[in-house]
């Protein structure tokens, strides 16, 4: 797999505060690369460096094997990006914004293509409205339209689902999947939410305080066998010993009076449930969460998206 984007030992400080610290990673062609980290971990700074908005203190970036800062303009022709908020010219219409940035993209874009991309991002019919009147979600969609209008091979999307409603989030997710699957784009997508990234990404990197703390493919990092299964019961007591002595003992992680926790493949849940019923244990609820997610959540102290009931 040849790397379309490669960062080597990137470091960046602001006033003696190291925001990105010797960060290295590589993105293969066609990959959807999840860039994960809590807010302030250095994701945006890294992405800005990848786009030439900021200059690394040290380290280098290669795109298609070419050193980025030496041929920034040439390489940017093949990159589309959204960085942080999707800010546009509010006093211009969506169409005017799109047409303008298309003109700046270095590729001749036909009006038909503009219409097509508006159709794709779901803004058709609203393109004549001033962007000022757009919702956050509509701006985000327009931002994505601008990022992809010149059909770049590499898309760098910084928190693209920020501020979107659930439907919007699903739409963007599907769009990313489709861009990767149907159009062969390489996509670097950042988020502070693991579950958002895990659904679209093929590989994930987690950075914390500017440093890489984990990297790997989704199948490696999110192996089903590492799923945490929490079962809420009426009361524990003697059950603990029965579990330890059963085949389930090797999966048991920790237990308290009312919650039993197992680390195992979710495929085994029906069987476990059946076993519990046979033992006359009343099951009030079953939660699943990946251990990697727990690890990430602990790291980021992020609790909002903690429990998702299956």
């Amino acid at each position: 797999m040849s790397a379309i984007l490669e960062a080597k030992n990137l470091s960046k400080s602001f006033k003696n505060f190291k925001v990105v610290d010797s960060l290295s990673f590589a993105i293969g062609k066609g990959e959807v690369y999840g860039f994960l980290g809590q807010n302030g971990a250095g994701k945006s700074t890294t992405m800005r460096m990848l786009l030439g908005l900021m200059f690394p203190d040290s380290g280098s970036i290669y795109i298609d094997g070419t050193e980025f800062n030496n041929s920034r303009r040439h390489l940017l022709k093949n990159i589309g990006a959204i960085i942080e908020r999707p800010d546009m010219y509010g006093y211009l219409t969506g169409w005017e914004n799109l047409r303008m940035f298309a003109a700046l993209s270095g590729k001749k874009v036909l009006p038909a293509e503009l219409h097509e991309v508006l159709e794709i991002v779901g803004l058709k019919g609203r393109e004549k409205d001033k962007v000022r009147a757009y919702s956050q979600g509509m701006k985000q969609r327009l931002g994505i339209a601008i990022a992809m209008i010149h059909e770049p091979g590499l898309l760098i999307l910084d928190e693209p689902t920020n501020g979107l409603d659930p439907q919007g989030i699903t739409d963007i997710r599907n769009l990313i999947r489709s861009l990767s699957r149907d159009h062969g784009k390489t996509i670097l997508v950042s988020s502070h939410l693991l579950y958002e990234v895990e659904q679209v990404a093929t590989s994930i990197i987690i950075i914390h305080k500017g440093k890489k703390i984990a990297e790997g493919t989704v199948s490696e990092l999110l192996h089903p066998d590492d799923t945490l299964i929490e079962i809420t019961i009426e009361q524990g007591g003697a059950l603990q010993a029965q579990i330890s002595n059963s085949a389930w003992g090797k999966f048991a992680v920790q237990s308290d009076a009312r919650i039993l926790t197992f680390k195992m493949n979710p495929a085994l849940i029906p069987e476990l449930n059946k076993w519990l019923v046979e033992k006359n244990v009343a099951v009030y609820g079953i939660n699943t969460r990946h251990s990697f997610e727990s690890y990430f959540l602990n790291l980021t102290n992020e609790t909002t998206a903690a429990d998702r009931t299956v």
């Binding site: 940017l76 960085i83 940035f101």
Partner: peptide
């Protein structure tokens, strides 16, 4: 201030 500068500069413009 508007944030459009960073969008401009992600385009191939010197």
């Amino acid at each position: 201030n508007q944030g459009t500068l960073r969008l401009m500069l992600t385009k191939p413009i010197s």
